[in-house]
Design a protein around this nucleic acid. Structure first.
Lengths: 148, 148
DNA sequence: CTCTTATTGAGAATGAATCTCATTTAACAG
DNA sequence: CTGTTAAATGAGATTCATTCTCAATAAGAG
């Protein structure tokens, strides 16, 4: 059994909840993904494998995975919430292009030092750090220049 | 005329748009606020002053103020988008306590240096920077300890 | 004033996310 | 294996922030 499964099952047990077939399948598909995903995209993938999992169950399972520390709500693109793995993934920033929707990720080791020192001053217990920069990516900037 | 008005009017003119009564009032109320606000809250305030501005116009004016560099979309609380001034306000981070909902803001001059250098490397044009840290504030940590 | 174009209010439409409820399933004791 | 209890589920209704439509109005140029 993979590590994320162990964590999820332990989490569910602790909450008096059950590790059902639907939850198992959702978790599995989520951890096969390596990009950010929204619920609709996830639901489509799940549906390709099994018609027996409803959209409602997918929506219901996501907050459980969040609470278990496996994924987090990430950038919000268009109008949909997006999610991403946090278990086993180093913290990173998101650079979102307003024009083409591209999301670039970069390491935030340096930033984390600043944040941790501030947290110490404030006596704040950090659970999540989210750095998002919005703007225009180099591709779209080039295209804009060319078309002038 | 206040500086934010000059900026907004210039922005509108440049776009071939008009600085109407409704837009003037919305801008005025927004710049009287010193907290984060969502559209519903803003609309309520505006409605107290004038019944002649519709919700639709408030929704339509917000992206204009964002484009003009006057406000930005900030943290998202519950299901609503929140906004905050950026013109005349130094960039800052948000420290959100998951327990009591407290939002602390801190300066991010040091962070901005990192972000700007990364942007240069990437040739990315920055429009918005948002650093949000979620966790437990010192007060709630103390309370938790006491009650054990 | 006249013309053109942007703006507006009201309410309909959209669409992501949540909720309801009747049915099914898991877990476990006997 | 059987019965019991509580959790889980699917389908579709509902909610609610946001966007859109469209007919009426207002701004601004000439």
């Amino acid at each position: 059994m993979q590590e994320h499964e162990i964590i999820f099952e332990a989490f569910l047990e602790k909450q008096g909840l059950k590790y059902t077939k639907a939850r198992k399948l959702i978790l599995e598909i989520v951890f096969k993904l390596h990009e950010h995903f929204d619920v609709e995209y996830l639901y489509d993938l799940i549906h390709q494998v099994s018609k027996d999992v409803s959209r409602a169950t997918v929506y219901r399972t996501i907050p459980l995975m969040v609470e278990a520390g496996l994924i987090q709500r990430s950038v919000r693109s268009e109008s949909r919430d997006k999610y991403e793995h946090i278990y086993g993934h180093p913290r990173h920033s998101h650079w979102v292009c307003k024009n083409c929707g591209l999301v670039i990720e970069t390491d935030i080791q340096d930033l984390m030092k600043l944040v941790q020192s501030e947290a110490k001053t404030q006596n704040f217990q950090i659970d999540e750090v989210n750095l998002t920069v919005r703007g225009i990516c180099w591709k779209c900037r080039n295209n804009a220049n060319e078309s002038q």
